[in-house]
């Protein structure tokens, strides 16, 4: 359609409601086609995301079988290693920012008096008042130093408060309790605390103990 034809058409379109509806129907069909194709694309992106692990494993197998490739790989690794070493601080911090989301906390029921202080601190935590929450949970933790729930939330509250150093002690206590329901999460946040402090080896070792997709993703990202 040239400019003149377009102008004539647009003029016609102004007063013709049937034509307006027809144009809208065509637009809907064409957008629907594009959306359907895009949805399939999104599904494909997801498959490549999941297949990433097996691709990495397959690559490693080839290198094991071929000495020449191994030596080339070694040089590349050495080169990348140097780059990685100088960029480690930046990339660890970037990875932490990418994967860190604070724990959402537990549901609170302020009507029950037994756990009033615990829940009260949880409300503070959920409102981002980490110092207050830590202060309250600390008092409880003094009487129950091995309590996995208290140690876990003290750990995640310190981490949310940008104090990975302090978080580690508490998260370790929960992570060492193999019966804790917070075991996976404690190892995940403990791993992230190490990452924040640039203790990459410890971070990987700890994240490996957490059986979550998220931990696997961070480990893979660290190995890349």
């Amino acid at each position: 359609m040239n400019t003149n034809e377009r102008e004539v058409f647009e003029e016609k379109l102004k007063d013709n409601t049937t034509l307006q509806q027809q144009v809208k129907d065509i637009e809907t069909i064409l957008f629907g086609v594009r959306k359907a194709i895009f949805k399939n694309k999104a599904n494909h992106f997801h498959k490549t995301l999941i297949n990433k692990d097996s691709e990495i494993k397959a690559d490693k197998k080839v290198f094991n079988l071929n000495f020449k490739h191994m030596s080339i790989a070694a040089s590349v690794v050495l080169l990348l290693g140097s780059v990685w070493f100088f960029n480690q601080k930046k990339s660890n911090s970037t990875l932490f920012d990418k994967y860190y989301i604070e724990d959402r906390g537990l549901e609170t029921n302020m009507g029950e008096t037994n756990n009033y202080t615990f829940d009260d601190a949880m409300v503070d935590y959920k409102h981002g008042k980490y110092d207050k929450a830590i202060e309250k949970w600390n008092l409880l933790q003094k009487n129950q130093p091995k309590n996995d729930t208290l140690n876990y939330f003290l750990g995640v509250a310190h981490l949310a408060n940008k104090d990975a150093d302090k978080a580690i002690k508490f998260l370790e206590t929960t992570a060492n309790n193999s019966e804790s329901t917070f075991l996976n999460e404690a190892n995940f946040y403990l791993g992230l605390s190490y990452l924040k402090l640039d203790k990459t080896d410890l971070a990987i070792e700890t994240l490996q103990k957490s059986n979550s997709e998220r931990s696997k993703a961070v480990i893979e990202a660290l190995k890349e």
Binding site: T48, K98, Y99, E185
Partner: peptide
């Protein structure tokens, strides 16, 4: 619909969202 841009948008955001939903 640049595939590489869309793919990196997907890769960069999926795990963060997944973590939020899992927790």
């Amino acid at each position: 619909n640049d595939d590489s841009v869309l793919k990196s948008l997907y890769n960069d955001n999926f795990y963060k969202t997944e973590q939020y939903i899992l927790t």
